[in-house]
Design a protein around this nucleic acid. Structure first.
Lengths: 243, 243
DNA sequence: CGATGCATTGAACCAGCTCAATCCTTGTGG
DNA sequence: CCACAAGGATTGAGCTGGTTCAATGCATCG
């Protein structure tokens, strides 16, 4: 299970050319250490599972390109999106033996996967790596708390606007071309219904708020999944203050 | 600012007798390493700030006893509770130079504080410590995601019930005496209004749901802030929480 | 072309919010 | 010791934002 059923490229990793080598987690590693990590580049097609809740943790992975969604299945059997992971996030780290959530490729995804045992050994050998991963996780925790705040207090309109702002920021840092000098073009990695469930809303409410944003001129729809933001500043303002 | 204005006990720490020495973060450290951490025991009276958002990060701390609430101030100037920290949680770790939230003693709190520089140095020297802190943070992240799920999808009734379950679990792991063999006694570390804002509800809704839980016989009020749970299992079921 | 899946729009309903009155509990001063 | 103030907690009544249910629109694909 997990990543096995996926087109795995077993060619030696071209770390030097990797976008993550500088900004990402492995930036701290020497070439020798990098070799010990036994990293393998993998391509995962859209909507395929990278791992599933309950799976044994057999490897961790960096997101090199694309977007990964993390999901949980509730007691009632519904799938809930709990987070989106953009490059150069690190995926699946946990001390436990089993994953507590599933990771699904929301788009075509490029990963850099490390076998669990080797990676944990390396973690102990290379304190800089460990501290960097710790800092990553701490920042992720921070973002998760911000998200919880939004879910607890913001109106549906603010949540939708806020989501677009987050995606725009994620897009800016990962995408090379921001689609135009004045304005950003977003590729939505989720359907309306997934989006709704991530935002803790219904599909209909999301749709209504999208049209509201469009009527206000804050966004334009190129297609259902492609959104142009003329003025991110103005959108950000609407996301937190309105009403 | 920060912990300065607090009754600081500068006596050498009695680590051997410390409850956290075994379960907590410092469990991995040898006596020699422990000395290098420059740990200082501190007592913080209820409702005093341990640090505030924006403060320079000058030290980290383990919670030895009591409960700490983490709060953020929104754009509109409202205080929002974002998390509760029970022993043996670790407080304030971040790679950044400034705290992004405030930490307030929700009860009388006993801390074990480590100066920032010394601790970060120790983190690099002692990989086991670093990995343990990483595992702590990863688990905290996990809990935060669960919380976000609850905020996104659960009804007010389930949130209140769910909160009591979480407190009960926190109490069970930290308190020595669970108040009776059949049932748990909770000390609520928050007022109704703080509780409401943590749960993303209003004070009134919280109150109504508490009476509803009482009428159903799932909880009993010893006083407004002291709650007896006769059957945690049944309460957990009503909260529709897994495990 | 119809079929299938996603998205938008409309109308009625309800959980949780707002506003407001009342009820503790605790502490303070006469 | 009682009175009374003050802050927290409970309860009630109406309002509203978001959900639910249902119909329609709009692509893509065999």
């Amino acid at each position: 299970m997990s990543i096995q059923n996926v087109l795995a490229e077993r060619n030696s990793v071209k770390c030097a050319a990797c976008a993550n080598r500088h900004g990402g987690l492995c930036g701290t590693l020497s070439d020798g250490q990098l070799k010990k990590a036994l990293a393998r580049r993998r391509l995962v097609p859209e909507s395929l599972a990278i791992f599933r809740a309950g799976d044994a943790v057999d490897c961790y992975a960096s997101v090199v390109s694309g977007v990964v969604k993390l999901t949980k299945t509730t007691a009632e059997g519904e799938h809930r999106v709990i987070a989106l992971m953009y490059p150069p996030e690190f995926l699946g780290y946990t001390a436990a033996d089993g994953h507590s959530y599933s990771a699904i490729a929301a788009t075509k995804v490029e990963l850099c996967a490390y076998p669990r045992a080797a990676f944990r050994r390396l973690l102990l050998e290379c304190p800089e790596l460990c501290q960097r991963l710790l800092d990553y996780t701490a920042r992720e925790l921070d973002r998760c708390r911000d998200w919880a705040l939004i879910l607890a207090n913001k109106s549906s309109y603010e949540r939708v606007a806020g989501f677009f702002v987050l995606v725009a920021r994620g897009a800016q840092s990962s995408q090379a071309a921001p689609c135009g000098k004045r304005g950003t073009c977003l590729q939505l990695p989720l359907t309306r219904s997934e989006l709704a469930n991530y935002l803790g809303l219904t599909l209909e409410t999301v749709s209504r708020n999208i049209t509201k944003l469009r009527q206000k001129g804050l966004i334009e729809l190129r297609s259902a999944r492609e959104i142009f933001v003329p003025d991110l500043e103005r959108l950000t303002l609407d996301a937190s203050i309105e009403r």
